[in-house]
């Protein structure tokens, strides 16, 4: 066992370790199954898969409490599941069924599970960042102890609304953690082609909030850091924190396939990330018989979720006109 793993494992108990593994495994297998099913065209919705990036959502969400809230992006399957979003409802949503988490009206890019604190995901980059800030403001005004986490990609930093939101969150000392999932690309565009200051944390620091960069997708480091700041925000009224998690998207920007043939990035570059896959990393530390049991149960859960989606009805015609306004 290397030093990093020793430190990581030392920081949690067996139950916590198992939870991390379960969550990672559930997300990976679910997305693999989505990719499998995709060619059948049953999922008539663009899908932005998180395969390779799951450790960020899982590490962060496992450090939160059930009453905390997350806001995310179109690349939201991992976040939704990591935060406890209902798997059946997610798959049904992708299938456009009335039993979906948004009754089939939202699709893959607009997952939501309010009961579990998944407050929504937007197809328009950076859009949910100020909404998360506002939610944190609301929580603070009501003297609640919960925390909001805003998830976004490295591209979102470039939108004006990101800077405007960070400024306000710091100004009002709001209970929010900003999590930037830096996978180095916005679609096919390398970050170096888009940002003048090469370190995102250097861009954010001047706003006057703690910043932290976690360079290697290390799920233990992510969980531990977020847990420590979440505790401080909860207990000491600490304000916003910015966490940059370096990670890597294995598949194409949108869709189920790989895209190395396009030539904007190399397989060589990806190799390093695939070799440090957090799922495989944790796998070694779970007892074989436990692992098989966990995996078997999750495989079955996923099968059932897809069956549920297949068998659920589409929304009826009158659903088209419901929910334009709250009545």
């Amino acid at each position: 066992m290397n030093e990093q793993d020793k430190v990581g494992l030392g920081s949690l108990n067996e139950l916590e370790l198992y939870r991390l593994y379960e969550s990672l495994y559930r997300i990976r297998r679910t997305e693999e199954k989505i990719a499998d099913v995709y060619p059948t065209d049953k999922i008539k919705s663009p899908v932005h898969l998180s395969i390779g990036q799951e450790a960020v959502s899982v590490g962060v969400c496992e450090a939160l409490e059930p009453g905390d809230y997350v806001f995310g992006t179109y690349r939201g399957h991992a976040l939704y599941l990591a935060k406890g979003g209902d798997l059946k409802k997610m798959i049904a949503e992708l299938y456009g069924k009335v039993t979906g988490c948004a009754k089939g009206k939202g699709g893959s890019m607009h997952l939501v599970d309010v009961a579990n604190g998944v407050m929504g995901t937007s197809a328009v980059v950076a859009t949910t960042i100020p909404n998360a800030v506002g939610y944190a403001l609301g929580i603070k005004q009501q003297n609640r102890r919960n925390i909001v986490v805003s998830f976004f990609g490295d591209g979102a930093i470039e939108e004006g609304v990101f800077s405007e939101s960070i400024n306000f969150a710091v100004l009002k000392n709001l209970p929010i953690i900003f999590v930037c999932e830096n996978n180095n690309y916005a679609i096919h565009s390398d970050i170096a082609r888009r940002q003048s200051i090469s370190e995102i944390t250097d861009q954010v620091k001047p706003y006057g909030l703690p910043v932290r960069k976690i360079v290697d997708n290390d799920i233990f480091a992510i969980k531990n850091y977020v847990h420590s700041i979440a505790t401080q925000i909860r207990q000491n009224n600490m304000g916003p924190v910015f966490v940059e998690c370096m990670t890597y998207r294995w598949l194409e920007h949108v869709g189920p396939g790989s895209d190395f043939q396009l030539g904007y990035r190399s397989e060589d570059e990806a190799k390093k990330w695939m070799e440090t896959d957090q799922l495989l990393r944790l796998q070694q530390y779970i007892k074989d018989e436990d692992r098989l049991q966990i995996e078997h149960a999750i495989d079955e859960e996923i099968e059932k979720a897809f069956e549920f989606a297949e068998q659920s009805p589409f929304p009826s015609e009158d659903e088209l006109y419901t929910e334009i306004f709250k009545v």
Partner: peptide
Amino acid sequence: FASVTCPTTTPLEDLF
């Protein structure tokens, strides 16, 4: 378009 937000699911989108 129907005076609603565009739904993703095919049967409703067809009506939209």
